[in-house]
Design a protein around this nucleic acid. Structure first.
Ligand code: SF4
Ligand code: SF4
Lengths: 140, 140
DNA sequence: CGGATAAAAGACTCTTTTATCTGATTGAAA
DNA sequence: TTTCAATCAGATAAAAGAGTCTTTTATCCG
């Protein structure tokens, strides 16, 4: 609805990593994939992006895997979203016009301001820690 | 972002029809397609759905075309959206889980309530007339 | 009335994007 | 040096979007 499937997977995976893996321990991608029922190779690609973005850190070989590269309170939802889907934007016209004309807006433009602002705030200000505070997510 | 391309096309087309065609006159789909730069055959499919939904009424043959079947104040945005994309829903979990657990929600669930409610209100309560009141939409 | 024509409806095919799967490569640990 | 697990390259599948062509139905014009 608002996030792409990749983005949803990314968020779910990060929550899993933060909750299930101790700071110094690696999470095997295979495990994450199995538990969260996310296609393995699709997940690897997503996690690679998160690693490139400096959100995760990965290790090959035995006991390898992936873990957080920073404290949950230093990871913004925004970073996760943009790491996975660099095009993501809330600026676009709700009717798909190329540039949004703030000067002479249509009614929908106007109505869309409020929810858009909320969404921008959620994505821009929520940290991984905020998400973790409200405990167990079902299926995890 | 929130609407599919088909839905955006549908809304733009309906606005065009309402503004450019007199009550008893038909709008040629070819014209709409040309003016709004919407692929012709893609648009016909969308408009067919709107016709099936009773929002538009169509006529074949010379001077045929499409026009509103009801007054703009009796056409809810919701109807347009659902006519084109019957699956559309704002109920879904923002993280893509199958059923949303209201009992023990995660933080995102909670944060998502506000914008979701706004969006539901926009879609559920806005009529075509509300959209038309705020005059000219650019590129139309 | 009867054929020419205009325009929507419908059936297919093609392209692009998003999502998923298969298999080979690399590197770390044991 | 074997083994485990991430990485990387590529093919395939599914969905959304766009294009081609045929059929149907209404008007027009003689
Ligand atoms: S005014 Fe309306 S149509 Fe124009 S860019 Fe803004 S939302 Fe889109
Ligand atoms: S609580 Fe969170 S994860 Fe669970 S259904 Fe609601 S939004 Fe989705």
């Amino acid at each position: 609805m608002i996030f792409t499937k990749s983005t949803k997977y990314a968020i779910r995976a990060i929550i899993f990593i933060a909750e299930r893996c101790e700071a110094k321990e690696n999470c095997s991608i295979r495990d994450i994939s199995g538990t969260l029922e996310i296609p393995f190779h699709f997940l690897t690609k997503i996690l690679q992006k998160l690693t490139e973005a400096g959100i995760l850190i990965s290790a090959k070989g035995t006991h390898g895997g992936v873990r957080l590269n920073r404290e949950p309170e230093d990871i913004l939802l925004k970073e996760i979203v943009h790491a996975v889907d660099s095009e993501y934007s809330t600026e676009e016209c709700i009717l798909g016009f190329p540039q949004c004309d703030e000067k002479n807006p249509c009614a929908l433009h106007y109505m869309w301001q409020e929810p858009r602002r909320y969404i921008e705030r959620i994505i821009g200000e929520t940290t991984l820690n905020d998400i973790l505070k409200n405990n167990e997510i079902h299926k995890l």
